[in-house]
Every structure is written in structure tokens, then in C-alpha cells.
Amino acid sequence: MTFDTGRTVLALDGGNSKTDAAVVTSAGEVLARGRGRGFRPHLGKDEALAGLGELARSVLVEAGLQRATLLSACLANSDLPREDEEFATWFTGQQLAERVEVTNDVFALLRSGTRARAAVTVVCGAGMNCVGVAPDGSVVRFLALGTFTGDWGGGGTLGTQAMFFAMRDEDGRGARTELSTALPAHFGYPSTAAVAEALHLGEIDGHRLHELVPVLFAVASAGDEVALSVVRRQADEVIAFVMAALTRLGLLDTETEVVLGGGVLAAQEPVLLDPILAALGRSAPHTRVTIPRITPIVGSVLLGLEHLADGAPVDEETEQRIRVAFGEARKPADVLQSDGDSHHFAGRQ
């Protein structure tokens, strides 16, 4: 097969923990791929941008290019239009591509999960965010800047909450929970207090609190009421995002894809997904919930190709070629259906 290599997309999907990069031709041939550190400009903007630039140049070199036709960057922590513009200006100055498009990484998850014109996506990884789009092109975004913008949840919050309740059990301030045994066991310490001291002194990196999410789910799945209360609140936050987006876009009575992603949701823990599916089955029965089984860099690539084509959708053959190249089977997502209080996997779609 002969590919058109005349126009290329340099795609970046920058999450909190890692950044994926790829160079793809307009015909769907993957010329190069790479992975770098996460994009966390709040910890040092210059260093974070430099890391993206280094990764971008490395995949361009691998692809045998000096620059691409278009750079499509979907970045965590680019939460405001003015930040999109700031980062786009920086990329333009690096001369990595003739054109630059920057948006939040939640759009990459959305596009990697569906071609639908009516869709809502919630990403729950280190933090949380949501976006919704309507058939007329209307978009709903949330600030998602932290607790002061109404946010709760994600791996960082869940790990911290697990420690909070384990500590309060151990010192007598709170209810009994198996978290006070499971958490120190995970880190190899004799008590929750010892873990807390190690975190305070830097003996345990604070980012390792994310490791407690699977521990929390395991304890909750065993029936621990304290752990269950934390997981239920996380489910409520996902539901609140979806319902707010559907309501604001007027999509409650429209067939709408709901794409769930990020490490916390992609783990597909029934203790978290069950209440989400049950609630949406009751309150938003026209939704279809999917969990992509493909890296969101595919969404960044597809968005880039659509920018190249002035907004025209990527044809299905080219999209399938790209998905397969990035390791996705013919059927791209886990589809979950809900009917009132009962729900099930509808199978691979």
C-alpha cells in the first residue's frame, strides 16, 4: 500500500504521569512514536514545556522530518483557553510544525473513544475533568482547577482519603476500617502513623499515594463501609459531571456516548462502575457508556488529522488503520449498558 507522506501530524498527549508522542501521515501511516515524562507546568512551566519540546523533536528525528505539517497537542493542565493559546504560542516558536493546535487532554480521550457527534467524556486519573459536545458543535467544559472550583476525586484524592480514614481509625478519631491495616502493609511499614511520618519526611514520595487506589478498591470490594464510602463519593462525582454536561447541552433525551477513561476508571472496578451505570440507567437512559482500550494519543492524532482537513472527519478506513497501528483490535471499546439498577458488559464493540 502506498501512503501519502506529504502532510504529517505531530501528536502529543500530555498527561500528569506521562506524555505520548507520535508522527502520523495524513493517510494513517505511523512514522514514529515516543514517550516522555508527564506534563505538570504547575511544578515548573519552563521545564515542563522543555520536556515536551525534547520529546517532540525526538519523534520528528525518528520520522526523518525537520517539522510536521500540524502539531496536535492535548495537554493535562491546559485548562483555560488562555493557557491553550500560551502553549500554542510556545510550540509555534519552537518551529516544530507549520500549524499548531493545543487543547486539554480530555479531548484526546473523547476522540479516542468515539466518532459520535453527541458525546460526554469523564477522565479520572490523577485528577478529574469532563467535556461534552453536542451535534451542533456546542461544547461544555469545566474549570477543574482544584477544590476551589468544586472538584473532588481522582487518584490523588482517593489515595489521600484512604490515608485520612486509616489514620483516624488508628488513633481513635474515626470509625474502624481495614484500610488501617492494608495501607501500611502495602508500603511495608508497621502502622499508618509510620507511613504518615515517612511521607512527611520524604522517605515515601508523595506521588506514591496513587498506589493506594487499588488497595482502596480491594478493601471496599471486601465490604469495608469506610472504604465503600470513599468509592461511592467518587462514583457520585463521575455521575455529577456526566449529568451536568448532558443537562447543559440539552442531551438528556438524545442518544449520547459517554466515554470513561483515565487510570481510575479504566481499571473497571465493579465497586466503582456499578453505581455509575445504575445511576445513568435511571437518570440518562439514552446514554451508552464506553471505556476505550486504546491509548488517548490516538485521539490526539485523529483530532490533528481533522484539523488538517479543516474539520472534516477522518474516513473510517484511515481511522481503523491508525487504531490498529496503535494496538487496538477491530472492536475498539468495552461497552457497558445499564437498565435501572442492573447493568452488564454489552461486549466488545
Rank of each mutant, 00 (worst) to 15 (best):
R173I: 04
T160H: 14
R176H: 14
V120S: 00
L52A: 06
P81V: 10
V298T: 12
F164I: 09
A220V: 02
A97R: 09
E178C: 11
L336G: 01
A68D: 07
R67I: 05
F3Q: 13
K331Q: 14
V238C: 03
V123F: 02
I322N: 02
L280M: 04
A222M: 03
D4A: 12
R82E: 15
V195C: 08
R168V: 05
L179Y: 02
T157E: 14
A11P: 01
H343R: 11
F91I: 09
V139H: 03
R288E: 07
L303Y: 08
R293Y: 05
A48W: 05
K18A: 15
A27Q: 12
L302W: 04
R233M: 01
K331W: 12
L228H: 01
N104A: 07
D171L: 12
A116F: 06
V23A: 00
V219H: 00
R323P: 01
P275M: 01
T5W: 11
R57G: 09
V106K: 07
V23Y: 02
E316M: 09
P190N: 08
N77M: 11
G28V: 03
F165W: 13
G156K: 13
G132T: 03
D236T: 03
D253V: 12
S26R: 15
G53Q: 11
L49D: 14
R37H: 11
V131I: 06
T69Y: 02
A227Y: 04
R321A: 14
L75T: 05
L272N: 01
F164M: 13
R141F: 09
G28K: 06
G113N: 04
T69Q: 07
T8M: 07
R37N: 05
G347I: 06
T177K: 05
A196E: 11
D46R: 13
A240R: 06
D339S: 08
M1P: 05
A56H: 00
L43E: 14
V131P: 01
T114D: 10
S112H: 12
A68Y: 10
V271N: 01
G206H: 13
D171E: 14
T89A: 15
I322G: 03
P313Y: 13
G113S: 06
F217D: 00
G127D: 00
G38P: 00
T256L: 09
V30D: 05
P41Q: 08
N77G: 10
V9I: 15
A220T: 00
R176M: 12
E54C: 07
E257H: 14
G53P: 06
T149F: 07
G93K: 08
L183Y: 07
V140I: 15
L201Y: 10
E86H: 12
R173E: 04
E54Q: 15
L49G: 07
E54P: 10
P332H: 13
E317F: 14
V242L: 01
L143H: 15
E83A: 08
V139C: 07
A267M: 04
E178A: 15
T160Y: 08
A119V: 06
G263F: 03
G327Q: 04
R321N: 08
P313M: 11
T295F: 12
L252Q: 13
G146F: 08
L158T: 01
E29G: 04
G156F: 11
N104R: 06
E319H: 09
D169G: 11
A193D: 07
H307F: 13
G28E: 03
L52G: 06
A144S: 07
D46W: 12
